[in-house]
Design a protein around this nucleic acid. Sequence first.
DNA 1: GCAATAGTGTCTGTCAGACAATATAGG
DNA 2: CCTATATTGTCTGACAGACACTATTGC
Lengths: 242, 242
Amino acid sequence: MSAGEAEFLAGYDPSLYERPAVTVDLVLMSIVDGAPAALLMRRDEPPALGRWALPGGFVGIGEPLDTAARRILREKAQMQDAYVEQLYTFGAVNRDPRMRVVTVAYFALLPAERFTAALKANPLLTLARIAPEGPAEAGHAASASGESGRLPLAFDHADILGLAIRRLRGKLDYSTIGFALLPERFTLRQLQDVHEAILGLPVNKSAFRRRMLDKGWLEATGERETGASFRPAELFRFKPQI
Amino acid sequence: MSAGEAEFLAGYDPSLYERPAVTVDLVLMSIVDGAPAALLMRRDEPPALGRWALPGGFVGIGEPLDTAARRILREKAQMQDAYVEQLYTFGAVNRDPRMRVVTVAYFALLPAERFTAALKANPLLTLARIAPEGPAEAGHAASASGESGRLPLAFDHADILGLAIRRLRGKLDYSTIGFALLPERFTLRQLQDVHEAILGLPVNKSAFRRRMLDKGWLEATGERETGASFRPAELFRFKPQI
DNA sequence: GCAATAGTGTCTGTCAGACAATATAGG
DNA sequence: CCTATATTGTCTGACAGACACTATTGC
């Protein structure tokens, strides 16, 4: 310990000296088949053996928090360039039975294609549909379900997922967060599908188009969808903010 | 280190083992003289000697984060029962030159009376007016000013203050956060003053009343203001959510 | 009555929801 | 032409801002 650090600590209770571990947990989110989804990893060791956990890891002593989040993204999902945002910091004393762990939760938003690509690249990952639990319970946890039913979550990760989905909902209509869940070019119908999946309810079509076009976030490409056996929709691009 | 912990750490890069210090910093906010204000402490030791810092402290190894925030509130401002909310976690590597410190920032909202009471109880505290810096700069810092002009802030505390005031703005009209800044009984004019101070712009009187009364958050007490030399306003109470 | 602020009523523009009408691709 | 969806247009009700009007207190 340096002299500066000793000075810093002077006057504090000695029982406060022992340091918690600091980790980053990442909620990798997308919209798959019209519903919010996240990537989870099955725990193959105790505690919480067999339960499902968010990708995460320790924060390096010389590593900023945001950098740690992007490192996890790279290591677990082989991806750069996703939208990443800090969510909340969870620090209950017994959230991990082995030791005191304070985790800074982040979420990353990905278009569904890159999501499925990540699933192939890392066989430890599993796709889970995320649904908020109950209307207004304590903690507002979310549940995860895979192809074979509900996936039990490790630690307090149900709370983290619940917060992630609610944050997404809250920011959807005043921010450009929804575009991070779509490919570079997309139709207004796809954008509407993303909004409906996140909000969990249908939105009015013409009002939605009007609102989106009025916000000035969209740029028409002039190109059209291909492959449909009916009138193809125009492709739009997210216009970077001025 | 326990066997469980060793197992936990297995497979991680050894350079990641050293743990950052974890602290909590608290933005004690109120509305004073029609403007957002916060309580700051002058640093009497290097680094940042003479600069102004948020009240804060280390998180105990057996202490939840929220509990640490309330402990700081108690120790520095001799107060219980304030509205306390986690804000953001700051973890830049060199935010403190002595060592790696990850700080979980919280804000606490107080009615102005209790604010001035805290100032008397703890002479190390100073009142500072908080103003967001520039329109949309990088980091969105805020500046603090006291009676004798601008107060230079320590570490990254200008960023923390900036985020606090913006969070307050963002949540003002869809949450009941504004009531935490008022005494138990208050007039609609006082509530409007709080909103105007936080938003930094005037709001329409009749529309504001309509909106507030329609939200169902208010309960008329039947009592009236005293001491005014004109028509006294009715006192309202915040109605706890059903 | 006067001053000053509380509280109400009305008009109007904006905007979202509802829903009908028109457009256009492949077949 | 038919089907299915895209895209546009119109009507209407909800609501916020503007602003004038009435109410009530101390003096």
